[in-house]
């Protein structure tokens, strides 16, 4: 599958990436090659009905609704470049 430059730019925009014209050309080829590889899957009969993986059925297998594993504000914010109180502080996002 051959991607167009426009499609590459669209994906780049969604990913918040600013690409140079050279990069657009590079990624056009690379992404097209990736899609070709993925296209191999089209040869598999992929019915739209879901198939349950064996041994995975039943609500009993799911997690119980109990509180555990909270990390606390200190650990939660440990990697934050900027903090205000116990919030992550980021450049203002305007709605």
């Amino acid at each position: 599958m051959k991607l167009t430059e426009q499609q590459v730019l669209h994906v780049a925009k969604l990913a918040r990436l600013a690409l140079t014209p050279d990069e657009v050309a590079t990624f056009k080829n690379q992404l097209s090659a990736i899609l070709d590889a993925v296209d191999e899957l089209a040869r598999v009969d992929s019915a739209t009905t879901l198939v349950a993986p064996a041994g995975s059925e039943g609500l009993a297998l799911l997690r119980q609704d109990v509180v555990q594993g909270e990390v606390g504000t200190e650990a939660a914010l440990a990697n934050a470049p900027q903090v205000a109180g116990t919030s992550f502080a980021i450049p203002k996002v305007l709605e």
């Binding site: 509180v67 594993g69 504000t73 939660a76 919030s87």
Partner: peptide, 26 residues
């Protein structure tokens, strides 16, 4: 529920910001 959809962090309302977080919801 008492805990979140994919982690054990509490869903309680009104705690200090980021008090109810886990590695999953972060």
């Amino acid at each position: 529920t008492t805990s979140k959809l994919f982690s054990g962090a509490s869903t309680s309302f009104g705690g200090a910001p980021n008090a109810h977080t886990s590695v999953v919801c972060l």
